[in-house]
């Protein structure tokens, strides 16, 4: 334990409190993003580089910009009144008591615990990849990841449930007003960064087979590039277009297909045939990267929705 650990671990609850207690919503969102960045450092300190990568790209990046976009779309509204005082006090007492209970339970956890780590490392040669986290995500517990992709698609369908269709939008409207003074600058930034971002995403994807990295990390980076390009004036993908819909379900669909084929052969769900694990995992990862990145981009409101 170093001073840095104490600083990071102490900063997280403080930032959480500031994000949730301040009256100014803009301030709240800034604190939220700062918390994501500090959390990414905390993951690195906890030897979780995979999570650090995702947190930096998604927790602070994508989620943070989603909050900013929503704040802009909703405009300033009168502050809402909080819960009644008595309820707040009761709930505060309850949460503090449970936090103390959970803390005591954590302190009582065994220092040298049983875990599945040894078992995973022992089975690593059979998984087809050399990085343990990727082995768990896409082989040993690949079924979780399959359902997780379904969650992602269900969420984007819920986001688009009653989003305005392109026909309802004013025709030929650019993605953002042209008088936006930021546009040329962001265009420069996009020109400089997007090629590098694509390169980094490909590198992360390839690296995932043997070191921290993988489909989700790559997709998060790729989505960041996509959002930058849209901010710089490139047309956003139309969620109602057939091609976009196909791209959306391409990755998860390929995953379901690969999960289903062993069933036909009388094996188990997602049981990769002997010797095929590596090839199939890479194929699934490539397909997923593409679809996840598209999904993350589609989480951002289409221009027609802005300001409603």
């Amino acid at each position: 334990m170093t001073a840095l650990d104490v600083l990071l671990a102490g900063a997280l609850p403080v930032l959480a409190w500031r994000a949730l207690a301040t009256d100014d919503l803009h301030e709240a969102v800034v604190f939220f993003i700062a918390l994501g960045l500090v959390a990414a450092l905390a993951w690195a300190r906890l030897d979780a580089p995979d999570i650090a990568l995702v947190e930096a790209a998604v927790g602070a990046g994508v989620t943070g910009s989603l909050f900013v976009t929503t704040l802009r779309a909703r405009g300033l509204r009168p502050p809402a009144s909080p819960a009644p005082r008595r309820a707040r006090i009761a709930l505060a007492v309850l949460t503090i008591a449970s936090a103390l209970g959970i803390g005591a339970a954590l302190a009582a956890l065994p220092a040298e615990p049983p875990g599945l780590g040894e078992l995973v490392r022992a089975s690593l040669p059979e998984t087809g990849v050399q990085h343990t986290v990727t082995a768990v995500l896409l082989n040993v517990r690949g079924y979780d990841t399959l359902l997780e992709m379904a969650v992602l698609v269900a969420a984007v369908l819920a986001v688009l449930a009653r989003a305005p269709s392109p026909s309802a939008r004013p025709a030929a409207r650019p993605a953002a007003p042209d008088d936006d003074p930021a546009r040329p600058l962001i265009a420069v930034l996009a020109r400089l960064l997007v090629p590098g971002i694509i390169l980094v995403a490909g590198y992360l994807l390839w690296r995932g087979a043997f070191a921290p990295g993988g489909a989700f990390q790559a997709a998060a980076v790729l989505a960041g590039g996509g959002i930058l390009a849209i901010l710089a004036g490139r047309r956003a993908p139309d969620p109602h277009a057939r091609a976009v819909r196909r791209g959306l379900v391409f990755g998860p669909g390929a995953f379901v297909l690969i999960a289903a084929v062993p069933l036909i052969a009388g094996r188990h769900v997602l049981e990769y045939p002997e010797g095929w694990a590596k090839v199939l995992i890479v194929a699934v990862e490539v397909a997923l990267t593409f679809s996840i990145a598209l999904t993350l981009v589609l989480f951002f409101p289409a221009s027609g929705e802005k300001g409603t």
Binding site: N139, V140, G142, Y143, H268, V269
Partner: peptide, 14 residues
């Protein structure tokens, strides 16, 4: 039905 052919406790069994 062990998903992925991995038995519990390592894998997920249906």
């Amino acid at each position: 039905h062990p998903a992925g052919g991995w038995l519990a406790p390592l894998g997920i069994e249906l």
